[in-house]
Amino acid sequence: MLTRITKAVLCAGALTLAQPAAQAEEFTEADLKSWEEQFMTVVKRGEKLFHGGLESKNTVSCDQCHPNATNTHPETYPKFQQQLGKVAVLSEMINWCIENPLETEPLALDDPRMTALQAYITWERRGVELAPGKH
């Protein structure tokens, strides 16, 4: 999906220099709607995982400490995390929570469940200004 958007944007840029006629790669309102639906499906999946869907070994779930994904601060990553001893990205901190409070095996960083969790967490924080590194 991203590739297609990039391509569309790049082409649009290039085309302004050449001819304004060709629209072959432009995206439409229908595309936008469809992509948003795709995204929201993953958000919903993330919401389920966040609310007990990770089948954590000790039954603890993310929402117990983070109702509506509050205090997860996705807009502040990457940032220094003392618990990891380095500047970390959000998914690393999600794994820290899965391993520690949830006492469960961490997810691969490209696991679709990790993507879904991040989709939900950032969706609940939409509109908030980026603040990388903030504590």
């Binding site: 003392q82 618990q83 001893g85 520690n100």
Partner: peptide
Amino acid sequence: FTGQGRCVSCHQVEQ
């Protein structure tokens, strides 16, 4: 040390 051992939170390592 930085993972399952949970050491680094108190025995700090920084960048």
